[in-house]
Amino acid sequence: MTIEAITGRYLTVQIAGAPRRIYFEEAGQGRPVICLHTAGADTRQWRHLMNDAEITSSNRLIAFDMPWHGKSLPPEGFETEEYLLTTEAYIETVLAVIDGLDLGKPVLAGCSMGGRIALQLAALHPDKFSGFIAIEASDFQPAWYDIDWFHRPDAHGGEMGAALVSANISPYAPNAERWNTLWMFMQSGPGVFRGDLSFYTKDDSLIPRLPTIDTSQTPVHIIVGAYDLTCTPEDAKRTADAIPGATLAVMDELGHFPMSEHPEGFRPFFVDALAKMP
C-alpha cells in the first residue's frame, strides 16, 4: 500500500465578479512553483513531479484545475453558456489563485496553453512571479484542425480529442502513461477542449509582447519536445529568439505532454529548469 504525499483542497475565489470553487493539489515545501495543466486536461498531469521527493524537498509544487476542468466546477449558469477561454480570463484566474493561496512570488510552470499564458504573464505581470518555465509554449499557432469537431451532439468530443492529441505524444512514452494522459482528454467535459483551443488557436496578442519581457528580472526558460506537432521545436525556437535572454531546451524523445506522457524522460529537463529559476 502507498499513500502519496499529494494533498488536494478547494479554494473559492472571485473571478469575473462571481465565485469559482477551484480544486488545487500541492506537495513539498520551500520555493512555491505553480503548475498549469494543458488544454482539455487537469492537475493529474503533474502528479509524477509532485510525487518526486527530491524535487519536493525544496520546492512546493501547487497545481490547480482551471474552472470547467477536473474537479473545479463550471460557474453557476454554465448550462446555457458557451465555454470560450480568453487570455484575460485565464490571467485573472491564475492571479486570483496565487493571491488566494498567498504564494508571494512563485515560479510559474505551464504546459501548452499553460505555457502560452506563462509567457503572457511574463510580459504583463512579471512583478507577481519570480520566473517562468514555459513548456511546449510558443507565440501562436493557428489550428491545423477544426476546433468544432470536439463539441457536437453526434459524437464523443473527449474520445475524438484524445485521438487527435495522441499525434503529439512521443513513441518513447511508456504505454501506461500515454494512455493515462489520453484518459484525461477523454474525461474532459463537453465543449471544454474546444473552449480551451479557442483561446489557444485564435489569440495572437502575445507576439508583439515577447520582446518586452525582461528576463533580467524574471528568467524565462522554454522547453519543447521534438514529437510535438502542435508546438514544434521550430515554433519554440522562434518564440525564444523573440524574448531577449530567454533560454530553450529541446527534448528529443518527448512530445506535447512531457510531465505526463514520459515523467522519467522529462524529469532532468524540469530539474534543470528549476535550477535556472531564482
Partner: peptide
C-alpha cells in the same frame, strides 16, 4: 518503424 522519427509517428504528422 518501432520508434518512428518525429513527424513520421502519426498520420497527421505526414500532413504537418
Amino acid at each position: 518503424q518501432p520508434l518512428p522519427e518525429p513527424g513520421f509517428h502519426d498520420i497527421f504528422g505526414f500532413v504537418k
